[in-house]
Design a protein around this nucleic acid. Structure first.
Lengths: 221, 221
DNA sequence: ATTACTACGCGCCGAGTAA
DNA sequence: TTTACTCGGCGCGTAGTAA
């Protein structure tokens, strides 16, 4: 089991909750997520099953999968190695409700000056738009702490005489999906955070204004 | 950069401290560690360099490598994904000195009944022998706590009428090297722990009785 | 829409080897 | 001892397609 895609697949399934229960997946989108074709995903999934790392059941045209204890062990061991490398991570929780932005998020994200840095430093191609969250009062301090932390800086630039400032970024999951939380240097609303990801989060989670969401921001001490 | 070996290589280099400084490596043993040939390790290393994920310098016949910020970012992102999956890990520190066992460690480890389970559950082929550590008094409580934790159980068995009990096991690094700490069910010395790994730790770290070592035991809450 | 088969061809791994 | 080249074979990823 040193085949790399197998490992990535296992991780992807775990991220979808397949350690605890059978989750419904499609070979196509699970493959897309880790960068392989539907056919390859299909082949690797059946390989994982043969090796006893997952269990599968048909579910209509789709399938349900669950990771076996042996599969979980593999992931654990890798996680422990990363823990040995980086030490214990901090997870900062934020909770709040979806609100509508004024479209500046989209405007910013589309600027190639930021976009190329997002691809490079956050390693995904951002969906053009941000999800704005109004953080509940009792989480505002957590959000404020982030403003003082430094993880990834998207450097500002000047375009046609207009100045675009630095943007602070943090890897973060929203509803368990990995994306990033961004804080523009001169943002002033202390209780509003913006999330970006490689998909439209509004569509993916069918979010409407006022819906409650949970964000986990990841940091290294 | 979804090539899996590249990722594993990067992790292996990080484990050796290449995030902070140039470390001397050999393509042969770095390859061996992740299960590829010297040639492939060489090729992948130069690919990593081309992609700007590591920097290399010749050092006699060997080379020194250091991971670039871009490389560190990739590892971080993966670590955060694992954190999202598993939550925050616990790291229990133990410190003590090397002592000589009575050879029972070796005797036990060589029993196929345990060995096959080590291969399966800890995912390495154990060097036939254990390293015994006498834990300093102020770390004994940490060691005692482990006796009550449950991570991996190597099930006991009966052989020729003799009963071999369950053995509790935990992933652990010793001097940064990933192995496992094992606690036989009926072990009585509360301040002595045994470490196993896929190499002779005594040889690898040139340990003599009385040398101080540091152990990190990894657990999930 | 799915999954998963067969075919095919490229990419990659390792043996051999040079320096 | 090293690293890293060339080269041959095959593993594996994808296209096409059936169910």
């Amino acid at each position: 089991m040193n085949r790399a895609y197998a490992q990535m697949l296992l991780r992807e399934l775990a991220l979808r909750g397949a350690m605890d229960r059978y989750v419904i997946i499609s070979t196509k989108d699970v493959g897309k997520r880790i960068g392989i074709s539907q056919q390859s995903a299909s082949r690797w999934l059946s390989e994982l099953e043969t090796e006893g790392l997952i269990r599968r059941e048909r579910f209509g045209k789709n399938m349900k999968v669950k990771i076996t204890p042996a599969g979980i062990n593999i992931l654990k061991r890798i996680y422990y190695e990363y823990s040995a490398i980086f030490g214990i991570p901090k997870i900062i929780k934020l909770k709040g409700t979806v609100i509508s932005g004024l479209g500046e998020g989209r405007y910013y994200i589309m600027k190639e000056g930021y976009r190329s840095q997002i691809r490079e430093k956050l390693m995904f191609d951002p969906y053009p738009g941000t999800l704005n969250i109004k953080v509940y009062p009792n989480y505002v301090d957590n959000a404020r702490n982030l403003r003082e932390a430094n993880d990834i800086i998207l450097k500002g630039f000047v375009e046609n005489g207009r100045k675009f400032g630095d943007v602070r970024a943090f890897f973060a999951t929203i509803e368990g999906y990995m994306g990033a939380l961004i804080i523009p240097e001169m943002s002033h609303y202390k209780d509003i955070v913006e999330i970006i990801a490689d998909v439209s989060l509004r569509e993916k989670f069918r979010l409407k204004d006022g819906d409650e969401v949970e964000i986990n921001v990841y940091l290294l001490s």
